[in-house]
Simulated scan of single mutants.
Amino acid sequence: MRFPDPVKVFDFLPAAALGTIMLLTVAAVFQRYVMSTPIAWLEEVNGLLFLWAIMLGSAAAKGAGSHLSIDILTSLLPPRGQWIMSIVVEVLTLFVAGLMSWYGYLLASQVQFKITNVLGIPYSYIDYAVPAGGIGIALFSIRNIVVLCKGHDPSVAKEMN
């Protein structure tokens, strides 16, 4: 049994959220300017979808190796030094993603009883996007560390799934 590529799963969800935002915005413009009846809940839904798209999209970018990096100093190192620097960067990324996930979880837990004005849903539904994105980034960092320790280039990690 072949499992789906986790990067593709993380790619699909933000793309679906952004597509939904686009469709809802077109519908809102039509409702407001043609029908003269604005959609009251649209701003809250778009905000929720946008935050989830950003956080899951950042995890997808980590998994695909698409985050911006400046390798001017790393490229001057010998191969062993580049390998060590790659491990250090992945461990630091894992640490930051862990902090982001933990504090995002704490934030979402604190606002679980605070309700949005229009939709009437807990703010935690919005804020849980932060730990979800952090967990995704952490998982891809762990994958990259494992791939690096096996002696491979992390850019081939996608093919190894």
Results as ranks from 00 to 15, higher is better:
1 M>L: 13
2 R>E: 10
3 F>Y: 10
4 P>D: 07
5 D>M: 10
6 P>I: 07
6 P>L: 04
7 V>R: 04
8 K>S: 13
10 F>E: 07
14 P>E: 09
14 P>T: 14
15 A>E: 07
15 A>D: 00
18 L>F: 12
20 T>Y: 07
21 I>H: 03
25 T>L: 13
28 A>P: 04
28 A>S: 15
30 F>I: 15
32 R>L: 05
35 M>C: 08
41 W>R: 06
43 E>S: 09
50 F>W: 04
52 W>H: 07
54 I>K: 08
57 G>P: 01
58 S>T: 09
61 A>Y: 07
61 A>Q: 05
62 K>S: 11
63 G>N: 04
64 A>K: 09
65 G>L: 08
68 L>P: 06
68 L>Y: 14
69 S>K: 12
70 I>R: 14
72 I>V: 15
74 T>K: 10
77 L>W: 12
78 P>G: 06
81 G>E: 04
84 I>Y: 02
86 S>N: 12
91 V>F: 09
91 V>N: 04
91 V>L: 15
93 T>G: 05
93 T>C: 02
95 F>R: 07
97 A>N: 06
102 W>L: 09
103 Y>W: 13
105 Y>P: 08
111 V>F: 14
111 V>S: 11
111 V>Y: 11
112 Q>K: 10
114 K>L: 13
117 N>W: 08
125 Y>C: 14
130 V>T: 00
131 P>I: 06
132 A>I: 04
138 A>P: 12
139 L>Y: 02
139 L>I: 14
144 N>Y: 02
145 I>R: 01
146 V>A: 00
146 V>N: 03
148 L>Y: 04
153 D>V: 01
